[in-house]
Amino acid sequence: MAYYLLTLAVYVVVGVIACWGLNLQFGDTGVLNFAYILFVAAGAYTASILSLGHPNSSSYQHYFWGAHMPWPIPWLAAAVVGGLLGLLVGLLVLRRLRGDYQAMVLLVVSIMGSYIVSADPGFLNGGVGLALIPQPFKGVLHLSQVGYEVFYLALALLAAAVVFEVVRRIHISPLGRVLRAVRENEAAAAAVGHNVAAVKLLVMVIGGAIAALAGAIEVQFIAAWAPAGWDYTETFGLFAAVIVGGRGNLGGVALGALLVQGLFLEGTVLLPNIGNPALIGAIQWMSLGALILIFLYFRPQGVLPERRRTYSSDITTRRNRMAALPAALTRRSARG
């Protein structure tokens, strides 16, 4: 039981990190990145080949290149690859396309990614996927199974703390204000001199790096990774978490990830086994759909909504002046 709960805790931490990255794009900036899971996958594959070692032709799994790197390198390299992929996809998709086209093309890009990996068995072992991915310090530490889980959870929490600090600083900085301006009104943000395309590209890179880091943490924990695990519908599960928790609120997003990713998608394993596993999976996905609908209808702002920001007093006085304006006008017209 302790083992199971620890496993669940690692999953939740991974989900929280991934949702913070998605929130930076979707919650703060309004970019609808339907290819988000592709960045998670990119990070997972990067961390895998950087810890598996050189590909062995006699082995049952094939991948184009590999190395055996010590711990922080696979995670850091994953974040770099995720950021680069964000740059590439962003340059391709975000520059010229209108918002709705961007969303659709990103969905297509996500599916293309999984087709490409599945089509070529020599690239990343095709549809079968990679397995037996080494876990950091597993051989050095000589811990019990539960002990190692605690250690890994600590590593994951360390990464989560770093990611939290990054997204929090962006959120409260002037940049965060620009992101929200782009979300609320692109044309207005462009009119006051912000380069909307560059802003979106930036969140694609940072969000992509965070997604990839989440993927790296996940893959070194479960030690296997295949296209079936990063189907494009997985992106929608992450979106659900951000919506339910409260887009634009970091605590809310974490809560959403805990609820949706943790209790909802993994926690049902705790339930007694009714019927066949396929039925339970179907019910899970259906309840996820219902949950999104209910939240978008009754509480579109999420459990913990984004805080309303109030800025320095000169804005309030200006607002008061604006409110006084109609009265002044009627006075004048009455006089005239």
């Binding site: 309004g30 609808l32 918002g99 709705d100 969303a103 519908t233 929608f236 979106f239 659900a240 919506i243 996905w285 259906m286 996820l288 759909g289 219902a290 949950l291 999104i292 609908l293 978008l296 579109p300």
Partner: peptide
């Protein structure tokens, strides 16, 4: 919003 509606139809697709 427009994007909200996209997410609504995604949920509908799952259902």
């Amino acid at each position: 919003t427009f994007f909200g509606m996209v997410v609504v139809t995604i949920a509908l697709a799952l259902l």
